[in-house]
Amino acid sequence: MNRRQLLVGSASLMILTRPLRADTEDKLFDSWLSTQYANQPRSHEGVTVTLPALAENGNSVALTVEVQSPMQPDDYIQTIDVFAPLNPVPHLGRFYLNPATGIAKVSTRIRLGGDQTVHAVAATFDGRLLLGGADIVVTEAACLDFLI
């Protein structure tokens, strides 16, 4: 089986099992979101989460989150949270920005404990939430390795 077949096969499997897996994932994400941000208005625009479609090893996966925003004193992104529902500690980190940042774009490398949707939540200075996410298939999950 070559990489393309594996990718298509995995993606198909993900799509087929999405209703089951997504249920758990969505519940985890929604409950965290409500705890963190209560009833703030949410929208699904302007957030781009860039992840590879397939990660060979979940120990170090490149992630970029970019949010459309003028980043001016009267309209800017204040925080970006990254959330991986199926990780043992789902909240991966929070990035704090301000107008001097210029562009709401951060990159880092994350650990993933399995196939899932990685979410990004951007909060504007006046409390609006912008949500985005990307699906990823992880061949060898992090968080369960051995030390040799």
Binding site: V61, V89, T101, G102, I103, K105, V106, S107, R109
Partner: peptide, 13 residues
């Protein structure tokens, strides 16, 4: 959940 030997990049005007 941040990978070992952390890489972080950000922007500055």
């Amino acid at each position: 959940g941040i990978a070992a030997n952390p890489f972080i990049s950000f922007f500055l005007r």
